[in-house]
């Protein structure tokens, strides 16, 4: 299975060792969340949504190899 790129923003980026991770063997967003919560338990207490290739997803979504997945805390522009 190919690699995916995970980018973290805002307060999520502060809870990860880097604001960009490269992961393998992740087929969908549920798997990704499982992995992230296990590796970085601090994320469990932080609200965020997920975008796959720059589109926000709701529910479990497939992640194709080479995708860019983003972890997005609530927006606060303006």
């Amino acid at each position: 299975m190919g690699k995916i790129k995970v980018r973290a923003f805002g307060m999520i980026a502060e809870k990860l060792p880097s604001n960009e991770l490269e992961l393998e063997n992740i087929a969908n967003t549920d798997q990704l969340l499982g992995y992230l919560y296990q590796q970085y338990p601090a994320l469990k207490h932080t609200k965020f949504s997920i975008a796959v290739n720059r589109k926000q997803v709701h529910g479990n979504e497939l992640i194709l190899p080479e995708s860019e997945v983003a972890l997005l805390p609530p927006f606060s522009g303006g």
Binding site: F9, G10, M11, A51, A70, L72, P73, P74, F75, S76, G77, G78
Partner: peptide, 26 residues
Amino acid sequence: VERIKKEVPIWGKEIIGEEKAVWKEN
């Protein structure tokens, strides 16, 4: 304005002092 604040992925970190900061909430 309403849609920009709600839908565009931008984050504001409120800087309080030399060391303190709080993530802004809309």
